Simulated assay, not measured.
Amino acid sequence: MARGENVFQRKDGRYEARYIKGRRADGRPLYGFCYGRTYEEAKDKADRARERIEQTEPAAQKAKPGQRPDMACFCDRWLSANSARLKPSSRAKYRTDIENHIKPFFGDKLPGEILPEEIDGFTRSLLTGKGLSPKTVRSILTLFHSILSYTGKRSGGKLPDVEITYPKSFRKNTRVLDEKEESALVQLLAQEMDACKFGVYLALRTGMRIGEICALRWCDISFEAAAISVCHTALRLPRGNVCQADPDRPSAAAGDDGGALALSRTELVIGTPKSESSLRLIPLMPDIATLCERFRPEEPEAFLLTGTDRCMDPRKLQRHLKKYLEECGIPEAHFHTLRHTFATRCVEAGFDVKTLSEILGHSNIGITMNLYVHPNLDLKRENMNRLKSLFPL
């Protein structure tokens, strides 16, 4: 049985540790294997193998003879060193932040030359010059801090500590459909319901993300257990950043948009959900189970929204939702609004927060309470009225 990350005990009693030693032309990982009589021995061998790979960096990431490596070089080294542990979507985001923000500002500087005043100027340029939100700027600064820490370790700890001041981030009131809007949307979805309307309704009644809906196959639905197994997500990544999380499902052939999208700079892929906590089982409500039986095809490997082996692009489902919302006269809403609405209705119905957190796929209940639970005024008033018995006039 497994005792740690990518370390397993074999039937012969030995331990096997797996590590990524390279990548194929399509971005899929090539694995190396180390063996040992104990868990620690196998893990130690794999760790040493990873270190050797990290030390053997591409020539493009090394400084020229007689030239000290600048921050652009260390940014590339950091991305290469952490590539194996990052999800494809995270790796693509970090690469974009590095190329679009960090390198243009700090790329030609030596690590020891960066001053706190320059970092403050970098922060101001992101906030005012580029108009990024404080939350996005905090994310970029956190990435920059990680690169600086990595650079310091590679420099023998000789770099001075640089303090980073993070901008304050104010939580916005998340958009939730009120009862009238939700009722209007449900009535529209019920009229001549097709696969796309079913997908939107499923999101509204389960809190699933748009990528999880698009990647859902009929074999992921257990009619015996009356539950949905969320184990994949569909996402669009820049070409060259694709690293399939499931070798048995290497790619997602686009649906009706496939021909046009094939020429784009991005690629639709099937990967694992956002985090380990996002791998979850969601019980089916009776009406959802009935609809599943209605749309159920003969081929269990078919995707839920298309009934074929071709995955629907999340952007197409988003366009369908936008059309439905316009027909209902519902403003300023997007697909994630359905997830917020589901969570809020669950709290209003008296859901146990721990149960709701697991249904949504959160790692802790704090995320559920802070990000997705938005009591309305009526619910607040109901709770305040409970104090009457404690404070009589």
Score class of each variant (00 low, 15 high):
296 R>V: 03
296 R>L: 11
298 E>T: 09
300 P>C: 10
300 P>F: 13
301 E>H: 15
301 E>N: 13
303 F>D: 05
304 L>G: 09
305 L>C: 00
307 G>A: 05
307 G>W: 02
310 R>W: 03
312 M>I: 10
313 D>Y: 07
314 P>D: 08
316 K>E: 15
316 K>H: 15
317 L>Y: 13
320 H>G: 06
320 H>N: 10
321 L>P: 02
321 L>S: 05
322 K>S: 15
323 K>S: 02
324 Y>S: 13
325 L>Y: 04
327 E>F: 09
328 C>R: 01
329 G>E: 01
330 I>H: 06
331 P>I: 08
339 R>K: 08
339 R>M: 02
341 T>L: 04
342 F>P: 13
342 F>W: 08
347 V>I: 14
347 V>R: 02
349 A>F: 02
350 G>A: 03
350 G>M: 06
350 G>W: 06
351 F>G: 08
352 D>H: 02
352 D>F: 07
353 V>I: 12
354 K>C: 05
354 K>H: 09
354 K>M: 11
355 T>Y: 12
356 L>D: 05
356 L>P: 01
356 L>T: 07
360 L>T: 10
361 G>C: 08
365 I>N: 05
366 G>F: 12
367 I>Q: 07
368 T>I: 00
369 M>R: 11
370 N>F: 06
370 N>H: 09
370 N>R: 14
371 L>S: 13
372 Y>R: 07
373 V>A: 15
373 V>Q: 01
373 V>I: 13
375 P>I: 09
376 N>E: 09
